[in-house]
């Protein structure tokens, strides 16, 4: 996402250490690492495993279980389009499929210029304003094709 720092082991160790006082610190650490570096690379997983005193395989298993964490950087901006039932009742499936086709993308892919990654999401709690989307954490209700296309342009500019 926007403003991610390049990965370095020392900074990763600092982030991990700052959370070691928590009970069950793995998820807070993973969120913090991803916020800093835009992803959780394999070297960070290694650092975590040694700090938490568990095997690398086990740590890897945790990271890969959750949809939110990814091992390589995504686009500079993130667009999540809801495809759960309520949004489908207002045509979300068609909206999303046509959007992806227009921009020659598949779910989970990033635009060739690296500006935008598009992911599905299963409910944003905006179901009275379906269909909905989330752009870099900003919620959008009653989203339409025009708004989605504008977001692609906006992402390009930044």
């Amino acid at each position: 996402m926007a403003g991610a720092a390049p990965y370095n082991d020392e900074r990763a160790r600092e982030i991990i250490a700052a959370h070691l006082g928590l009970e069950g610190p793995a998820l807070p650490i993973l969120h913090a690492l991803q916020a800093e570096f835009g992803c959780v690379p394999e070297s960070a997983v290694k650092e975590m495993a040694s700090a938490l005193n568990i095997s690398r395989a086990e740590m890897h298993g945790v990271v890969t279980f959750y949809h939110d964490f990814h091992s390589a950087p995504h686009g500079r901006h993130a667009l999540k389009i809801c495809r759960a039932e309520s949004c489908q009742s207002m045509g979300a499936e068609k909206l999303a499929n046509e959007f992806l086709a227009r921009h020659k993308l598949e779910w989970g892919q990033t635009t060739p210029d690296g500006s935008l990654t598009v992911d599905p999401v299963y409910c944003l709690g905006l179901c009275a304003h379906s269909p909905s989307a989330l752009y870099d954490g900003e919620p959008i209700g009653m989203v339409d094709a025009e708004t989605l296309d504008e977001l692609v342009q906006e992402a390009k500019g930044k």
Partner: peptide, 26 residues
């Protein structure tokens, strides 16, 4: 204390949630 999940529907199931809070796979 507030803890934020990581995009797994099954973590709403109470025992999966507890595993997740403990820092494990849900």
């Amino acid at each position: 204390e507030l803890r934020v999940g990581a995009g797994a529907y099954v973590c709403g199931e109470e025992t999966s949630l507890l595993e997740s809070l403990e820092g494990k796979r849900g």
